[in-house]
């Protein structure tokens, strides 16, 4: 069954994010750092009266942090709002989620996040679960 997915760029790779997990897409302003927090927690940012925890998605996936991403996908997990930084947003379109076929050797972080594959014009795109990228929830998400 086709479902709406948001296609974003993270670390130069296209990923598909279930639109149910996406509350909004914003550009993040100034970020207040959180000393001693996990490395991929960039800090806190204000979205109007709401304070969101900004997650450096790239480093959460075990990649080098580019540190430049400003655009973020806002998601709501367990009563808290998170902003997951993405390089760019490409598209919102309905796709069919296909299972991750065996034999794909994904990196560990990608494997944790990966939920399946969607196919865009013949190009396979990894569908990821945002909750698995958020520290403190990563364990809970399977």
């Amino acid at each position: 069954m086709a479902h709406l997915y948001l296609i974003a760029q993270i670390a130069g790779r296209a990923v598909a994010i279930d639109s149910n997990q996406v509350e909004s897409v914003v550009d993040i302003g100034e970020v207040t750092a959180i000393p001693r927090a996990a490395e991929h927690v960039r800090g806190l940012a204000a979205l109007r009266s709401r304070v969101v925890t900004v997650v450096d998605t790239q480093s959460a996936l075990g990649l080098e942090s580019s540190g430049e991403a400003r655009r973020a996908v806002i998601t709501h997990i367990d009563g808290h709002h998170y902003a997951l930084l993405v390089d760019a947003l490409e598209d919102v379109a309905p796709f069919d989620l296909l299972p991750l076929a065996g034999g794909f050797a994904l990196d560990s972080a990608w494997r944790n996040a990966g939920r399946g594959i969607v196919e865009r014009d013949g190009e396979p795109i990894l569908a990821i679960d945002l909750a698995s990228l958020v520290p403190g929830h990563a364990v809970a998400a399977e």
Binding site: I34, P35, R36, A37, A38, V41, L44, V51, T53, V55, D78, H80, H81, Y82, V134, P135, G136, H137
Partner: peptide
């Protein structure tokens, strides 16, 4: 307001 677990886990 309470902070997210990612923040609270620092214990600080």
């Amino acid at each position: 307001k309470p902070a997210s677990p990612a923040v609270m886990s620092t214990g600080l």
